[in-house]
Write a protein that binds this DNA or RNA. Structure first.
Lengths: 183, 183
DNA sequence: GGGTACATGTAATCAGTTACATGATTTA
DNA sequence: TAAATCATGTAACTGATTACATGTACCC
């Protein structure tokens, strides 16, 4: 009963999920849909939308129709198998705790090899950009609350905001008391 | 005055940083060094240590000596250019706020396509694994405090712990009040 | 003295990124 | 109608992952 073909990646599931949520879509529409919301969650270049939709269509998880005129856009819609694949993935809850994978934190880790003034600048910059993102997120939150549907998207936004708040606090603390190598 | 060759990746800097910190190292030693500490921060397979050290040596940032007998291990040491590259990178503080890139949160985003009991299971699993990691981190923190050197490593650990605490709170809340699609 | 766990490395593949390129639409 | 911008796509490259493979040391 299992599908063949190469394993699906996070971007595969993002595409399946967006098509499932929004109905038949062109890669360009997917790009727009992603930019409102999940782009924040998992960035990828738009070119991947073209290769990945093709791949998903070959695997039978999407169907592709192509306009015969003008731009000859491709429009994808999800198949039964596509919905199943998405659902199966969602039913295998991800066990691993989130990785950190944060370049700024990596720089902090090795900050002994630059002057400590650079660390302070890093900390200030990071605090500032997380603060800015938090401000933008509050607007988005307001809009989502007004809409009322999409509680999951709201929950994800809440995660992002908690993350940003944590980061602001952390980097403020680093800026105020930069760790010093022992004498 | 700029180096030629392909751009350096985060893993490049991790290797440069570890060799700078610990002195001449074999790939295998690097693997062990990474597993104590930064592995948490930026995971990668050990095979990359072989390809990446080779690349860095070709770029003149590491030197390679090879044992003539027995295992013919390669041992790398950092060059002047390598230190410079590391320092230059550290002096360009990373501006972007951290991405989220969290598979569990991605599953939350699309959780409407599975039953809500699966979301609750996801939330419980995530809360639990972050809690476990937090416990382990407290031990590591104790050891680092005793050692006293490596305040940067301690700061990074503190970041990871804040992250875990935030995640535990968040997923507990989701488990308690899973978002429901509107009726 | 053979099994098993750790140590050390290579090869092949592919997802993801970068760079390029052209078609439509709007605006001035 | 020129130019700028948005829309749409392809091609090439390569870092990262997966899979494989062999060497060495220890232990029973």
């Amino acid at each position: 009963m299992s599908r063949a073909g190469p394993a699906l990646t996070p971007v595969s599931y993002m595409i399946l999920g967006l098509v499932a949520r929004d109905g038949p879509s062109t890669p360009y529409e997917l790009k727009a849909a992603a930019s409102r919301g999940i782009a924040r969650l998992w960035q990828f270049p738009h070119s991947q939308l073209y290769s990945e939709t093709t791949r998903l269509a070959q695997a039978g998880l999407l169907t592709e129709e192509r306009e015969t005129e003008g731009r000859r856009r491709r429009r994808y819609r999800i198949t039964r198998a596509g919905r199943d694949a998405l659902r199966d993935w969602l039913r295998e809850p991800w066990q691993e705790p989130a990785q950190v994978r944060n370049l700024a934190v990596l720089q902090l880790f090795f900050s002994q090899f630059a002057g400590s003034e650079h660390l302070v600048e890093l900390a200030r910059t990071q605090a500032e950009s997380h603060r800015a993102r938090l401000t933008a997120a509050r607007e988005a939150e307001k809009r989502l609350l007004e809409r009322g549907d999409r509680p999951q998207q709201l929950a994800v936004l809440e995660y992002a905001m908690r993350h940003d708040r944590m980061a602001v606090d952390f980097w403020n603390r680093i800026a105020a008391e930069p760790p010093r190598p022992p004498a």
